[in-house]
Design a protein around this nucleic acid. Structure first.
Lengths: 202, 202, 202, 202
DNA sequence: TATGAATGAGGCTTCATTCAT
DNA sequence: AATGAATGAAGCCTCATTCAT
């Protein structure tokens, strides 16, 4: 039967390849129609695989999405960490973070459709750990005097918010420089001001 | 029909009342199970109305959600506008904006379940217009010298990002003061720094 | 569209009619392929109704089956009860029960396929209540002296077992008489013997 | 391959062992979730074997079930036969049959979950042959005068029905005695009565 | 023979939506 | 305008089974 030949072709894909195939399909489906509108079916259809195969690798749409986010979080974290490690002063700290984040965000456009970019986020342990890590490093930097004394929780929120929102406006790699400088200057000046007007005085 | 008498009770609800009934139900359903998981059925079930009635007022789940967002955008915009109008300097401008936004955000908690708060946003013309309005006012404020010369698009993004992200961390009204002061100081100092290192130099 | 005309036809069926349509289809599907092999799909397919309509009336295959059994139990119980009420002695009691049961069983052939007849039973509260009722009446009959003193629980089991198993061999109404006489004589003589050799002597 | 060594462990199981492994797993799965709800997957999962291996031994769930029933039928038949052979009169005949059957039934509890015990039966050639054998022996016993002249087909049905139904009520070995005496007395007396009122008179 | 990933049919169920009343 | 039963597409997922290794 002709079917047997086709089947063979698919079998040739290794397990890891199939998982990647699904992840890639999911990424593009989410990008095209958004997470909420996408269905497992849509993802499978964007794949040469059979419907049942999806369930050999993921439990649900949420599960693939999580894997995608975790992959992203796993990929960006070392870069952010590295940037923080090399920073010798506040400017380098901030500039390194934003530059790394913007570069990554631009490269990973497509996890969300334009209308939804960064408007939907699913926090997974990995993503959450990424934020926690940033916050801890901020605390350490404040303790070391690399950063002026500011509330680490709020600063993390502010950095995150600016990072995500400004990254949405990026159009090409050429924009990264300006965006990083903008955000860096904003926080550099901002932290200076915050250091002078501690919450306790308010 | 003997049933007509019972039905009268429901008929008593005016058109506007039915619309509000559905909106309220949708708000609470979205809050309880999240936008993605919620269905039109769920919304109807949270209502004394019949399924068909839903379609007299809204076209789909997205449609109600949009109406909800627009109502919110419509409600917050005058407050933000008013705060901007009364501002005599940059500090008042910023503090007014953040205070108004945080107050509103806290009061409108519940459009999303805790796990999803502000993680999903659907931009509607109304919401979009709100951002545009803010940006225009920033441009005007820069022109008038109320704000230092900064890129209005980026500043809008940064304000939005900080506004949304910090608002997520608010737990009670008591937090609003500190959060507003933090954000205000951040941007006050930040803009000062930005004014000294204009994008053109980069 | 031609579709609208067809739809109208289906709408004409009243709620009760649809329920009955489904029950009838389920009965014949279970009869043809057995409960285990039958699927909700099979039942729907044996119907002019849409798949979703099934779920307006029943929750699952088990649910329809239960309804079928309950209908049967509900239908047979009054007849058995009536037969017990009219019995003036043990022979009438037994003969009445078996005759009513065999008549009913023959008429309700088809709830199971031949290969499975009476080999699969799903006890529902109704069915269970039917057995309990029989047992209580046996206790009462023993107390009144209509039946000799025998263990009511075991007698109920034995009657049930003989009733079901013998009913499986019935081929036509003409067999009912002989089967009822056989079973009646068996228990009449059996109870006489049991009365003489109570369990306590064993 | 490095995997081959691990595999060896499984390979050590002989063909017969694998078959038994599957049968045992099937027995416990059927007991836990019932025949209808159980799937081949469930059976495999209760095994250290791979899914494909199942098909080296059985064709389907029905097939294993049949094997289980046949094993049971094969196991019980010699005991029933032996009991019949040793019987010198009707009482011994009946008592031997019931005692053997109840003992076996109690020991083999677990082919079905409590809620389904003996409520589902699948007749296989082996099981069927068992009934036929009983009937033939009854005919022979009637011919020899060991049993009074009764319709062998009906008597077989009645014995079977009482056997199965009463066995369902057994809770421990201690119950076997009483149950066997009850059933024996029932049929002893019953056959006496039947002998006096032959079907021909009816 | 044993393995277990891949397959895709098909089961179950919910859903948005229609439309006769 | 309101109702709610009917619809059937379509979602989710499991299953039996195959077959390359």
């Amino acid at each position: 039967m002709s079917a047997s030949r086709t089947r063979t072709t698919r079998r040739d894909l290794t397990k890891a390849q199939n998982r990647d195939t699904i992840l890639a399909a999911a990424r593009s489906v989410f990008a095209e129609m958004g997470f909420a509108a996408a269905s497992v079916r849509d993802i499978i259809r964007a794949t040469p695989l059979a419907s049942g195969t999806f369930y050999n690798y993921f439990k649900s749409k949420e599960d693939v999405y999580q894997a995608l986010r975790d992959d992203a979080a796993l990929a960006i974290r070392p870069r952010l960490r590295e940037a923080r490690r090399q920073a010798k002063d506040a400017r380098e700290f901030l500039d390194g973070q934003f530059r790394a984040f913007f570069t990554f965000a631009l490269a990973n456009r497509g996890l969300h459709p334009a209308s939804e970019t960064s408007r939907f986020r699913m926090d997974t342990p990995e993503v959450f750990a990424g934020f926690a890590e940033l916050r801890e490093d901020i605390e350490a930097a404040v303790a070391l005097g690399v950063l002026p004394p500011v509330d680490p929780a709020r600063l993390t929120e502010a950095l995150t918010g600016v990072g995500f929102e400004v990254s949405r406006g990026l159009e090409s790699e050429a924009d990264i420089d300006g965006a990083a400088q903008f955000a860096t200057a904003l926080f550099l000046g901002g932290m200076g001001m915050l250091a002078k007007t501690p919450a306790s005085e308010a």
